[in-house]
Design a protein around this nucleic acid. Structure first.
Lengths: 243, 243
DNA sequence: TGTACATCAGTGAACGCGCGTTCACTGATGTAC
DNA sequence: TGTACATCAGTGAACGCGCGTTCACTGATGTAC
């Protein structure tokens, strides 16, 4: 996507001209309306015309702001990842005792849980089924890494402070070390294999729990989601060697 | 839904009349075509007309078999849950040494993984984002319990045989015991709280892993899904106290 | 500062398409006597 | 076994709707001199 000069101004923090101000505002309004659409009909039925109708403008006008329906979807996806990433980063950063890694983990997991419940449809967009016929472009990759990065970093901090990952019942297979190399390499210094494996498993538990809860698979099976979530997070803290 | 006599015959194993045979076959053909549709356009865009076109019949004819698009979706959902449930049950049953609970767990987890990869769109239908505007009716509840039941039962068997769940780093809170009561009560005798909590956490890990893998969140991060899945399953076996 | 020109936002009509569902109807199959 | 009637499967037209995207155009805003 080639950005026009006007578009770049619209996206900068201090738009100069009246046009740029209007563009920034309408871009925002389109995204907000589309986000609402998302909640009502889902990503597959997200409609440029419905957004235009909602804003009282001709449907063709939306194309001055987004080149296509897919571009609009991409923008929603990037915003959702960024929003979640920011929430998680802030929750971690809000723990003033940086050495209390268990508290940082709880804050991180809680932020994911809270964000997902506050924005169930945006969670479904990012972590639910892929949208058929839509392939997320490269732009979404970096924002998607923000949240997981926080977990890996706090685990690295724990290891640096001499806390560690509880034993895993055996050595990590060399093939597994190779398979998870990119994850290990996220932090500096890299995580040891045991930590990487446990981090990935815990990450799956966290998102698995949130998905099962939000998508209705705990209906009438778990009666108090908050209590159970706290229990699972504590258990993960224990498995991570933080508690 | 009230079933007509003819419909009940069509669903029984040995349809009598030529009509009933034809009905059973066409019902099957509709479901197969719809399943293919699902893979191509997703559940939200599943179209009665497209199914009819595929089968070379008038779109109105499909309504002789399913009262509405939602009814068709429900049938797909029930079939998917049953298919997964059967695969998991068979995988567990195929382990001849019933006391080798670790092997039963690996077979169970592997069956979920294999089924999901063989039928990614049916997995997305059941465990991905809910279909907007569609509320799954009661008919889907029982089939959905088949797979999790296998895990709970093998864990109960392990406990009966003196194997058990490793310690969780603390006692299970009474509120959590209450919250997870329905899960404990699935087996006879009921699972103790520690086992229930660990079972739920492991269940979230398993489905979290499969979702993250299938929905593209491990792209360029985990390089060998099979190796990593095996590692996570082994780790879960260890956490469950089976290995 | 004032003017001429370039850029941009927004319009409304149009293209070609697909959808779920209903309905009156025809012809084949099944059933009761 | 043969016949009359009831049931069912499938048709094709119709209703009323929505979609993404393009295009020529108008009028407002911005810019260079």
């Amino acid at each position: 996507m080639v950005l026009s000069l006007g578009m770049m101004r619209a996206m900068s923090d201090a738009p100069r001209t009246a046009r740029a101000v209007a563009r920034a505002e309408l871009t925002r309004a389109i995204l907000d309306s589309a986000t609402q659409q998302l909640a009502e009909v889902g990503p597959a039925a997200l409609s440029v015309r419905a957004v235009a109708r909602d804003l009282g403008m001709a449907s063709s006008a939306v194309y001055r702001y987004f080149a296509s329906r897919d571009d609009l979807l991409t923008a929603l996806l990037v915003e959702a990842y960024d929003d979640l990433g920011a929430a998680v980063e802030e929750a971690d950063a809000a723990v003033t005792d940086r050495d209390d890694v268990a508290a940082r983990w709880r804050a991180t997991a809680g932020a994911v849980h809270d964000w997902a419940r506050a924005h169930p449809h945006r969670y479904a967009l990012t972590y639910g089924s892929p949208v058929p016929g839509y392939a997320a472009p490269q732009d979404t990759v970096e924002p998607a890494t923000r949240a997981p990065r926080v977990l890996l970093q706090l685990l690295a901090d724990a290891l640096a402070a001499g806390r560690g990952v509880r034993d895993l019942g055996g050595r990590v297979d060399p093939a597994e070390v190779a398979a998870t190399g990119p994850i290990s390499a996220v932090t500096e210094p890299p995580l040891p294999p045991e930590a990487t494996v446990r981090a990935l498993a815990v990450w799956a538990t966290l998102f698995g729990h949130v998905s099962l809860e939000l998508f209705g698979h705990m209906n009438n099976a778990v009666l108090d989601y908050d209590t159970h979530f706290a229990t699972v997070v504590d258990l993960a803290a224990y498995d991570l060697g933080l508690a």
